[in-house]
Every structure is written in structure tokens, then in C-alpha cells.
Design a protein around this nucleic acid. Structure first.
Lengths: 236, 236
DNA sequence: AGATACTTGCTGAATGATCATTCAGAATAT
DNA sequence: ATATTCTGAATGATCATTCAGCAAGTATCT
């Protein structure tokens, strides 16, 4: 919804921008000019993800982000000081959202290692996390991470915790099931596969979210046959 | 080796640039000013890979490429018409080199499916292909591929052939060994894992080429226990 | 052999386009 | 009245592209 108003000097200003839907009328958030600093920052971060997905890292401009948010050209420097800061904040947001998501999935999964691994794999392909635009944004950052220590640190922090969790799950399953593998290479190959599937999804060859999830499940069912099947974790 | 000469007007020109070593004195290639068009193009492509690896896609400038090749600022537009063309030629070169490499590995491997899969996995982590600078360049292109159909096509072409090969190897091994898996998801997860390991190598967390290869081998040994061990393919 | 014209590869300063950043001041809220 | 949020034109930096001209090589003529 967009409303155009003319002010006394005949200039056209836009109130109630066609932004994201986070400003419901029921919550405590104010709208339009009164939006809080945090709301604006989040709105700009969402517009940045859109732009990264649509135009790629190297063609993402502040003008495009501002247009996407329905705000003026100077807005990013007002709220983030610099383009660099905006991009870092965007990556930080995505990394936190990702970590929160799989941590929540783990918590819901209960104490059994098999169910926890099952939940972890599914979390990666959940509709909330695994959307075209977010995958594309992740990949844009990966492409730049090599030459930007800040991005590398943020992407790396994402992985380290995750991989440690997978390693300990592999170790627990090995102890329970008497498998022959070493936990660390097994966990590494599993994590790498999940990331590789994301890359495939992003690249838009035939791979769909369903096929990717199927392949991931087939993988873990093969590696942990005593604990996981294509249909779900076996009850121990 | 760099030799500086002063011409009659006092200007300094550079002969025998510190370029790549492709101009041995024995082959048919001329050097310096007389380098053939193909030689120059290859020299600029190598400099482009260097720049992508060192500065990332978005910070790679034609000035940097020209400096890296020890040539003047206008050189890229002289040989490639545009920056876009240079980048496409670079990606094309890497894609061809990659395909040639694993095809050659397959040919050397002989007719048995187990040995061919073993060779394919090893080819991915061979020193010729799997260098920091080339991984970084691949990743730079992946990051831009989403929003650039040309890159997407070139990266995709790389994968399709490869994945078809892996699918047929999985199918052959299944027929031989009576495994339960479906060839396609299994091949997809295997290919995704190999790409994911490349991503890890590029990101420069603790993962080394040796660890990556170990994880990949451990995985295929788990999936095809009747055909592959950590030490190599079983003789059938 | 030397002189001459012609071709090809290359240079680097000039050009113009794009874009991040700045900031004076407008609009809005308190 | 004062503070806060926001605007958008102006600024300057960066960079791809152009192109006139130089230099090296080659062919033709004397």
C-alpha cells in the first residue's frame, strides 16, 4: 500500500511505504516517519537481502537498497554510517537468524542423538531459512568472504558451532551403534554436503528443496542405518 | 626477470615482463612484444584469477589485472573488448580445465566403476585443480552466478556432465553390489559434498586439502563398502 | 643491404559514467 | 521551541572504456 501526498511546496512525499509487513497496527511499533531506529535498520537489512539476491553483491548499490525500502538516497548513511556497515549488519542478521533457527530445532528435538541429527538436517531446508533470496544472499557473501576478513569471521563463526554440534552427535551415535567411522571426517562430510546442497539450490539447476532434503536424508540414513531411515529416526 | 630500457626519447619501456613462465626459449612462442594473441589472452586470464583470489570479484579492476600481467592499462580492452568478456573467458578457461582434468582421470582409471569413482574423487582434490587461488576464483564466480545468466550457464555446464557421470557410476555400483540406495539422491549428495568441501577449503577454516580428501573418501567408503575402502578400491 | 611503407601490438592520458558519502535544511514528533 | 528523522542535490572518488599515437615487426622496393 502506497499513499502519495503533496506538501505545500508541491513536492511529492511518500508515507506508508510499500515496505515489509513488520509494522502491524497491533504491536507497539510506530509507522512512517515515526518508525524506531531498530525498525528502520531491519527494513534496510531486508531491502539489502533483496538487492543481493536480485542483483548480486557487486551490483548492489545504496540507491537500490533505498529504493527497495521506499526511502530516500541518503538513508543508509544516516542509519548505518556506511555501505560496509550495512552489509556487515546484514550478514550478522542472517547468521544470527540461522543459528537461532537450528538451536531452536535442536531444543524441540529432545535428548536422543538420532532425533537431534534428524532435526538438524531438516532445519537446514526449512522454508523459513531456505528461501531463494536468502540462499542467494549467503552465496553473495561467501563469494566475497575470501578477501574480507570480517565476512570470513562471520561466516566461519556460523560453521564452527554447527560443526561442533554435528561432531558430538556423530560421536554419540557411534557410541550407541558401534559404527566404524571417525566422527570428525564424517561430520565434516555431512556439513559440507549440506552447504553444497545450498549452493546447488542457489544455482538453480534442477535441484529443488525437496530433492535436496531427500538427498541429505538418504545420506544420513546410509551413514547411520541403525538410527535413521528415510522415514525418520528409529526409536531406540 | 624484468629488463628496463630507455628509448631515444627517454621514456622507460619494459621488455621481458615478469609474466608467467609459458614462454620458454625452446617452444614456438615468441616473447615480449611479439607474444601471440593467444599467449597474451592466457596471460591476462591468469592475472585475472590472481586478482579474483586476492581482491575478490567486486574489487577486481582492469588496472589490477593489467598491473598483475605487467602490461598497460588499456590492454584488456584491446584483447577482450570489455571487462565482462575477460571474466567470461576466465570462467570458461577454468571450467574447461576442470572438465579436462577429471575426464583425463577417468580415462586413466580403467573400466571398473569402483576405480573410476575413486579416481573422480581424487581428481577433485588434486594439486593442479585444488589450489587456494583457483578455489577462490571459483567461489567469486559462484557468488555472482545467481544474478548473471552467463556465469550460471558456465558453472551449470560444469556440474551437469559431472553429476551425470556420478549417477551412472552409482547405478553401476548398485547393480554390482546390490546396495539399497537410489542412484540419483546418492549422486546428488556426493556431488554436493565435494562442492561443499571446496567451499570449506576456500573459506580457510581449519580444513586442509588432506582432511577434505579424507572426509570424501571416508564417505564413499561408507556408502559403497563392498567396493571402496579408505585405502582404495577393492579388486572385484 | 638500406630505405620505405604498411601492419600489428601496445600505451596511457582523457572521458564520462557510476556510485558512496556529505550535509544543509525540510518534515515531523515531543 | 527543540529534538529527531529523513531528504535529495552536490561532491568527489573510482573505474571501464576510448583512442590518438608510438613502437616493433614485416613486406616491398631500390
Amino acid at each position: 500500500m502506497t499513499v502519495l501526498l503533496k506538501n505545500p511546496k508541491g513536492k511529492v512525499t511518500v508515507k506508508m511505504r510499500a515496505g515489509t509487513a513488520e509494522q502491524g497496527s497491533g504491536d507497539g511499533e510506530k509507522r512512517g516517519r515515526k518508525a524506531s531506529k531498530e525498525t528502520r535498520r531491519q527494513q534496510l537489512i531486508e531491502a539489502t537481502i533483496d538487492s543481493l539476491a536480485k542483483r548480486g553483491y557487486s551490483d548492489t548499490t545504496l540507491a537500490d537498497v533505498a529504493d527497495g525500502a521506499g526511502l530516500s538516497r541518503g538513508i543508509v548513511n544516516f542509519h548505518f554510517e556506511s555501505k560496509e556497515n550495512l552489509l556487515i549488519a546484514t550478514l550478522q542478521f542472517m547468521a544470527e537468524e540461522y543459528a537461532d533457527h537450528w538451536n531452536a530445532a535442536l531444543e524441540k528435538a529432545g535428548p536422543e542423538a538420532a532425533g537431534r541429527l534428524w532435526a538438524l538436517v531438516h532445519a537446514d531446508f526449512d522454508r523459513k531459512i531456505c528461501t531463494k533470496r536468502k540462499l542467494a544472499a549467503w552465496c553473495a557473501f561467501w563469494g566475497e568472504a575470501k578477501s574480507r576478513p570480517t565476512y570470513q569471521a562471520l561466516c566461519g563463526a556460523r560453521d564452527v558451532k554447527y560443526q561442533e554440534t554435528v561432531i558430538s552427535l556423530c560421536a554419540a551415535l557411534k557410541a550407541e551403534g558401534g559404527y566404524a567411522f571417525e566422527p570428525e571426517p564424517t561430520a565434516l562430510s555431512l556439513c559440507a554436503m549440506l552447504e553444497g546442497l545450498w549452493l546447488r539450490l542457489m544455482m538453480g539447476d534442477g535441484t529443488t528443496r525437496e530433492k535436496a532434503l531427500e538427498a541429505a536424508i538418504a545420506h544420513v540414513a546410509t551413514v547411520f542405518p541403525k538410527h535413521l531411515t528415510l522415514q525418520g529416526p528409529r526409536s531406540q
